[in-house]
Design a protein around this nucleic acid. Structure first.
Lengths: 156, 156
DNA sequence: TATTGTTATACTCTATAACTATA
DNA sequence: TATAGTTATAGAGTATAACAATA
């Protein structure tokens, strides 16, 4: 750990000690395992985790172009094309021409998507609550406090 | 939220209010996005996130049979067969016959794997530290506190 | 020329089903 | 018969490269 003493006053960029390394390890490992399980314990049979994620992003932003969605979800444009097409086929998003730029399109969620998200949230809670029964209150509180940070991290 | 008043004294199984729902949402969304990015920002070019995860598990447990590894990683045995074969081809694990049961095998990490994990931790810190520069100290502290909990959750 | 989105294609990871060897 | 692991195969998700339309 020789570099720690060489960078004494990084105001908040200096997350690099051993506790941080352990956290990084746990984080990466947990993220991989959870993502694998999420694919299976999916709450809505017909929707993949990515489709759910895109729908969530859309719900927050109101509407967006495919390119914006791809950037927000950190995927490549062709992948987003496919996701949007799937969601449209399921009646969960609407595609309209962009008012100012005829190359672009505007994607927005349908009423059906909104209802589905509500229902889905209920089911998700049931699953997660079951999983969370293995956590005590203190652990759950830590997780809840970190959730928005994790989300921010994923968007950085 | 009608059920809250119907289940007044669940000691710690009652994670189900709106703040929890928001946390669940953020958690799922962040996990999916991060896992996708982890596949690309991988620190060691030749190792997939899953291979890294298995190696990490192996480092903690010392050695294990393929079946045990599959259960711990929440994957199916055939998938683990493939991962173990890849790791063996890279000289990172060793396969030995099980002393008591000739159906089973014992997987253990090599010295090379140990060295690789050390090197990898350094690189990972660099990547995460870069990402974490967008977090303030308080956010990072929350994340660090939650990391072991996330790991526990992923194993439940 | 640069940018948005799409099409065509290939790769990686993982699962299920069927099989082999051992208990 | 039941269990551990493997082989064969298929499917989902995503990427890159090449392309079309528009700016």
């Amino acid at each position: 750990m020789s570099y720690a003493k060489d960078m004494p006053d990084l105001s908040h960029g200096g997350h690099g000690d051993e506790a941080d390394a352990a956290a990084v390890n746990a984080l990466r490992s947990a993220v991989m395992r959870l993502s694998r399980r999420l694919k299976h314990q999916r709450v809505d049979e017909s929707l993949s985790p990515t489709e759910m994620s895109v729908l969530g992003t859309l719900a927050r932003s109101g509407s967006a172009t495919p390119g914006e969605l791809a950037r927000k979800e950190h995927m490549q444009p062709p992948s987003m094309t496919r996701i949007v097409a799937l969601l449209e086929a399921k009646g969960l998003v609407r595609l309209e021409p962009h008012p100012d730029d005829r190359r672009q399109k505007v994607v927005s969620q349908t009423e059906q998507a909104e209802a589905m998200l509500d229902e889905s949230r209920r089911k998700r809670n049931a699953w997660l609550a079951t999983l969370a029964e293995g956590l005590d209150d203190e652990e759950w509180a830590k997780l809840r406090a970190a959730a928005p940070v994790l989300e921010k991290l994923a968007h950085l």
